[in-house]
Design a protein around this nucleic acid. Structure first.
Lengths: 193, 193
DNA sequence: ACCTGAACACCGTTCAAGT
DNA sequence: ACCTGAACACCGTTCAAGT
C-alpha cells in the first residue's frame, strides 16, 4: 500500500496518451472523457492538467502519434521498383492503415482538433503528406503539386467512406481486390506523361 | 402574455432543426448542446424529447437535410451537354457545396451519427450518391461501379481536406482554378474508354 | 397531445491545499 | 514538481406532474 502503483513510473503523461488511444479505438471518441482517462490511469480528476492544458491537447497528441504510424505504414508500402506499382501499393497501405485504425484515423482528421493550434500535429500531418508528395517530381512534371493533392484526396476520400461504412452496399471494403480495382485507373492517370 | 409565442406555431420540431443547423454552421458541432437549442427555441430543457428520442436523432435530421441540399446542388451542377465537362462541373459543384457549408458537410459524414441507426439519413445519402452513379452506365461499362465509387472518393476526399484547411499550404481552396486543375486529369480518367 | 420542473449521473476546468 | 479534493458551471436524459 505504501509502495507507488506499478504503472506510470513518474510517466503519467505517457500513460494518459496510451489509455486515451485505447479508449478511442475501443469505444470511439465520443465515449472518451478526460475524467475517465484519469480514472483508468489511477489518478485524480485534476491530475491530467499537470501534463496537458486541455482535453484537446491530449487528443492532439494521440492524433500526432497516429500520423507517425501512418507515415511508417506508407514508407513500408512503397518499395516496389515499378513506380506505378509502388504508388498503388502505397495507396493500398494508406487504406489499410485507415481500415485497421478507423477511430484513430477519424480523430487525425477530426473537427474536434483545430490543427492550427497544435503545431506538432500539423507538422506530423505535413510529414505524412510529404511521403506522397515525394512521388511526384516538380522538376520534371509541371503538374506535380496538383497530382500529389489529387492522390491524397483520392486515398483520403476512399478511406473515409470505407471507415464510415458508406461503401458497404457498393464494394467489398476489407482492402481486397475491389478497392485495388477502384484505385488502379486513377493511380495510373496520376502517373501518366 | 397569454398569447402563444410567435415562433414554432405548434411546429417546435421544425424550429429545433432550424436552430440546430444554424448553431452548427455558426459555432461548430462541438458547441451544440440540446439544452442550448431548447433555450434558443424558447422551450424547456425536456421539450425536445417530445420530438426527438435523443440529441443524435436531431443531428441525424439536420444531416439528412444536408444531403437533400447537396443532392440539389449536384443536379444543378451537371447540365453541360459534354459528358466530361458535365462530370467535372458536377464535381466542382460538390466541392462548392462542401466549402460553402463546411460544418454541415462534416456532420453529414460525422462519426457522431451511426447511419445504420437512422434509415432516413442513410437513404438520403444513397440518393445523393446515386446522382454520381448515374454518370456511369453498367450496361456499356463493366467498371461502372468502380468508377462511380472512385469519383465519390475523389470529390469527398478533396472536399474533406479543403474543409479541414489541410490544403491551405498547397493549393488555393476557394474553389477556383487550382481545384479544377487537380480534378481534371482524374475526372478524364474516370470517363476514359 | 405537448410542455415544464426537478432530479440523476455525468462532464471539462480551476484552484487552493497537500507532499 | 506533481498530485488531490472540492467546487463551478455546465451536459444528456428521465419522469412525474401540469394544461
Amino acid at each position: 500500500m505504501s509502495t507507488s502503483k506499478p504503472f506510470h513510473h513518474g510517466d503519467l503523461r505517457k500513460e494518459l496518451v496510451s489509455v486515451a488511444r485505447e479508449v478511442i479505438e475501443t469505444d470511439g471518441i465520443d465515449a472518451l472523457s478526460l475524467r475517465g482517462v484519469a480514472r483508468q490511469a489511477g489518478v485524480s480528476t485534476a491530475a491530467p492538467y499537470r501534463h496537458f492544458d486541455s482535453k484537446e491537447k491530449l487528443l492532439a497528441e494521440v492524433a500526432r502519434q497516429g500520423f507517425e504510424d501512418l507515415h511508417d505504414a506508407l514508407d513500408r508500402g512503397g518499395q516496389s521498383p515499378d513506380p506505378f506499382q509502388s504508388l498503388l501499393d502505397q495507396s493500398m497501405a494508406y487504406l489499410g492503415f485507415a481500415m485497421a485504425n478507423p477511430r484513430l484515423y477519424r480523430l487525425m482528421f477530426a473537427s474536434h482538433i483545430d490543427k492550427t493550434k497544435h503545431p506538432d500535429l500539423m507538422e506530423a500531418g505535413e510529414r505524412t503528406f510529404a511521403v506522397l508528395q515525394a512521388r511526384f517530381d516538380p522538376a520534371t512534371d509541371p503538374h506535380a503539386a496538383a497530382r500529389a493533392i489529387g492522390c491524397w484526396g483520392l486515398v483520403h476520400g476512399l478511406a473515409s467512406l470505407a471507415i464510415d461504412n458508406q461503401l458497404d452496399a457498393h464494394v467489398q471494403t476489407d482492402g481486397g481486390p475491389h478497392m485495388r480495382a477502384i484505385l488502379e485507373p486513377l493511380v495510373r492517370a496520376l502517373m501518366a506523361h
